[in-house]
């Protein structure tokens, strides 16, 4: 990577250019600029302001744990196997963070992964996954189920 004169003279003259991000739990994390550039929300700010990269960029909606997961996912070029180790909460946290950070590739990847996970799951599993309260009466639900009984066959175990 080419460096400008100003950056050469900086005290922290790293091999790979990094940007410091400040997570919601107050952790300062140095992240490679190639990864940061996937985060449109940070990228647009850096590009417009030509900011001093040593000043932490605040991410009040992303925890250090979620940012760790995101960095690993991007480094591993969105590896399915790595993502399969995520808990349900971690999947949702990465989804929400990808949307907030405006990371289009990650958002598409994680939304597709969650869709694949839910595709053959029961209605009860979905309610539990998204923490949704069933507001149908038993009669109403039975009525909807009756109209399309075939869609309740061949499901995964919860």
């Amino acid at each position: 990577m080419q460096k400008t004169e100003g950056e050469e003279s900086k005290a922290e003259n790293e091999e790979v250019k990094q940007v410091t991000l400040m997570t919601s739990d107050g952790v300062k994390m140095k992240v490679e600029i190639s990864i940061v550039y996937e985060m449109e929300i940070v990228r647009s700010f850096i590009e417009v302001n030509d900011a001093d990269h040593s000043v932490p960029f605040p991410l009040p909606n992303v925890s250090s744990h979620t940012l760790d997961l995101i960095i690993e996912l991007v480094k591993n070029e969105y590896d399915d196997e790595f993502m399969k180790t995520f808990s349900h909460d971690e999947l949702k946290e990465v989804l929400v963070a990808a949307n907030y950070l405006n990371m289009k590739t990650l958002l598409d990847f994680i939304a597709t992964a969650i869709a694949n996970l839910l595709e053959k799951k029961s209605v009860e599993f979905i309610r539990n996954f998204f923490n949704i309260v069933n507001d149908f009466t038993p009669e109403e639900e039975a009525e909807i189920r009756k109209t399309n009984e075939w869609v309740f066959q061949d499901l995964d175990e919860d």
Binding site: K120, I126, N134, I144, V151
Partner: peptide, 9 residues
């Protein structure tokens, strides 16, 4: 899946 998830809420 969508038809099944009609009765989530």
């Amino acid at each position: 899946s969508l038809v099944r998830f009609n009765c989530v809420c």
